[in-house]
Design a protein around this nucleic acid. Structure first.
Lengths: 215, 215
DNA sequence: AAATTAAGTGTACAGGTGTTGACTTAAATC
DNA sequence: GATTTAAGTCAACACCTGTACACTTAATTT
């Protein structure tokens, strides 16, 4: 990661064991247990490699975990950025964004399951990393809301509060969606519909609230 | 639990080991790891008892977990019932309910931490039990909302949606509060304040939303 | 007072765990 | 082509795990 001393980068092409280890861990998280309770041996076994080979790629399991976390959020951030820089928010854009997001969740089930379980049950390091990431999303959302014409009379603190409400709720609905069977399209659409209604309430509700109770 | 065959109940007064085991497990959950990754031996050690003594009280660890879950929700339900049957909802009642609730959370930190970690990381049995319990709270809340004069023109489905929004959010804030240090009163008050603002938005927002967009 | 039962202890075993060190081998660099 | 380095294997260790079985002991029932 830090070393690139010589002129030409030397890439170990042969061993994609590193990726295999990460995939194995993710796999075990999906169909067995939270990451925190996976054993090194179990992961290497599933990766089709001898236990000691693990140390060629990670110092210990928690390092693997952090790498997995990084991977999860790097691609998620990428997607979020694409969603954000679409045209100005309007009526249909809310539904559209939610569809893109939940579609992404469905296509990255393993990563979301991993993150979801670690958010509550992981080591403090893990939990903090995840919470920091979520806080970042909340801040960005608050900034986007500020450009929403309907909301431009709402102060920064209240925007933050609203964004928190949205993020908390979407997080919960994501976990709900992860509990559904992968092919339960009915259930998934139901969650999506609920999400849309709830966000609509939040967005439109604040207009009323602010104009009435400014005290 | 089921047996009470003879005339007089025979209580094993000597061994409060059962309670000790439950307390030990809860203790370990607070300061170490999610319940799922506790070992039987570690629990018995902390309870000050030999490993095999465990089997006199529970068939295995997951039975202990379910008992713990039962205990957690039995007292929580009791508190909720008291909060609910207060006088009709009004302005100050929102704040009051939240204070009672979060105070309860603070006084039952271990149980909430346990539940919070199991909600995402537990066995399917555990997760379902918890989710069922939460769904129950949501339903009860929806019923309470129906009696709210401000909301009596909202149909059942939307009430359910609103209640879900409230419960999701309070759940998230509960987890946020559990991450704070026990003596961080400032942070705790901040969470409480956020909660109040957010719920106010939900409650008052819907009035505007429904009267405007009935479509 | 005798008998029964609940609840504790100690020993033992088979298996899983993380990590060590020395060895092999294939690829990348010189 | 020789050498260095990255990435794999194998064997061994000390420890922790759940659970079976036989044993003790105190309390409750009879």
């Amino acid at each position: 990661m830090t070393k690139e001393t010589t002129s030409r980068a030397r890439k170990p092409k042969r061993g994609q064991t590193r990726e295999a280890l990460m995939a194995a861990a993710l796999d075990l998280v999906v169909k067995k247990a939270p990451f925190s309770s996976l054993s090194l041996r179990e992961v290497t076994k599933r990766a089709g490699v001898v236990p000691t080979a693990f140390y060629r790629h990670f110092p210990d399991m928690s390092a693997l975990g952090l790498t997995l976390l990084d991977e999860s959020f790097r691609t998620l951030r990428h997607m979020m950025r694409q969603v954000r820089q679409e045209e100005l928010p309007n009526e249909r854009m809310l539904r559209g964004s939610l569809e893109v997001y939940f579609n992404y969740v469905r296509n990255n089930r393993a990563h979301f399951l991993f993150v979801s379980k670690e958010l509550a049950g992981g080591t403090p390091t893990m939990r903090n990393a995840i919470r920091r990431e979520i806080r970042m999303f909340t801040n960005e959302l608050a900034m986007d809301m500020a450009r929403f014409p309907f909301l431009n009379h709402v102060n920064a603190e209240d925007l933050q509060m609203m964004a928190g409400l949205v993020v908390n709720n979407v997080t919960a609905l994501t976990q709900e969606m992860l509990e559904l069977e992968e092919d339960d399209e009915f259930g998934q659409n139901q969650v999506l519909g609920t999400a849309e209604k709830q966000l609509r309430l939040i967005y439109f509700g604040v207009g009323f609230w602010k104009s009435k109770a400014d005290q």
